[in-house]
């Protein structure tokens, strides 16, 4: 087992709340979005109808998942007006806020895979199958090809992301088994396997957020004491190095990789307050 816990210095420096601020905000965001969807079926309060593939809020605001809609387009179907307005709103939001904000602030599977990562740490499970970080883009391409070739939105037949969310709202059935499979994959087979290597939804949102404005920035990277806590806690640790260590090569300090989920855990876990949220435009080397 680890002799020191990740973020121990930050807790000592900033207190427990100070070093879990973004994590707490993220859980609040994830759970309240889920709660908004579930208020209807559980309490009869219909603020939001539908699920993450398409929802109608207060009978006026349509929101459409662009990845599912793209697959539908590839089957040769043109959606109705509400579906198109919904997709425009979502595209604009994630284009600015960072595509993978969806992954860390909205997606219900994040709770499952974060749970697996936590348990993996507690049980001291190390190693496992080596998956390429690019695998997800292959899976993404495959789902699009299969949609076009089969004429059906095939990925939605097995997509654990929509299955879990839809299941919680409309009835889970045996979808729990698929969610459990994702949990076990992350726990035993390979670290951060689903969200960081396989999931095509995340891959799609990565591409969508390639030029996003809201980014994490290592503004005080000179203060970095190489404790490596940010690397240990980050779901996509490869994105940090160029920004944190790029001063000599005149790179950074903004994390530009679209794989960054803007989860803010690096901000929490740093005792030196190296990171904070900023804008892409503020990326001046220094």
């Amino acid at each position: 087992m680890n002799t020191r816990t990740i973020g121990a210095e930050a807790i000592a420096e900033k207190g427990w709340f100070g070093s879990h601020k973004w994590l707490i905000l993220r859980r609040v965001s994830q759970l309240s979005i889920l709660a908004l969807f579930m208020l209807g079926p559980l309490a009869g309060l219909w603020l939001v109808k539908g699920n993450l593939t398409y929802s109608l809020t207060l009978d006026i605001l349509p929101l459409t998942d662009p990845y599912v809609l793209l697959q539908s387009l590839l089957t040769g179907h043109i959606p109705e007006k509400l579906g198109l307005i919904g997709v425009a709103i979502i595209l604009a939001f994630y284009f600015l806020a960072g595509g993978r904000v969806y992954c860390s602030w909205v997606c219900p599977v994040n709770l499952v895979t974060d749970g697996a990562a936590w348990m993996r740490g507690r049980l001291g499970i190390k190693g496992g199958a080596q998956l390429s970080r690019n695998l997800r883009y292959w899976v993404l391409a495959m789902t699009l090809v299969v949609a076009g070739a089969s004429g059906t939105i095939a990925w939605e037949l097995i997509n654990p992301v929509s299955m879990l969310h839809r299941g919680l709202i409309f009835g889970l059935g045996t979808a729990w088994a698929i969610v459990l499979a994702v949990f076990l994959l992350d726990l035993f087979v390979s670290q951060k396997a689903w969200c960081g290597h396989v999931c095509p939804v995340g891959a799609f949102y990565s591409l969508l957020g390639k030029w996003s404005q809201l980014r994490v920035s290592a503004v005080k990277r000179d203060a970095c004491n190489d404790c490596m806590d940010c690397f240990a806690v980050c779901p996509e640790p490869q994105v940090i190095r160029p920004a944190l260590k790029g001063a000599k090569q005149n790179i950074g300090p903004v994390i530009l990789s679209p794989n960054c989920t803007n989860c803010g855990r690096c901000i929490d876990v740093c005792s030196k307050d190296v990171f904070r949220f900023g804008l892409r435009a503020s990326n001046k080397a220094g």
Partner: peptide, 17 residues
């Protein structure tokens, strides 16, 4: 049916309404 499976995004709005 074949067209339906390419067009339906499984949002459940019909179920709700």
């Amino acid at each position: 049916e074949p067209d339906f499976q390419g067009a339906c995004i499984r949002c459940g709005l019909c179920v709700r309404d």
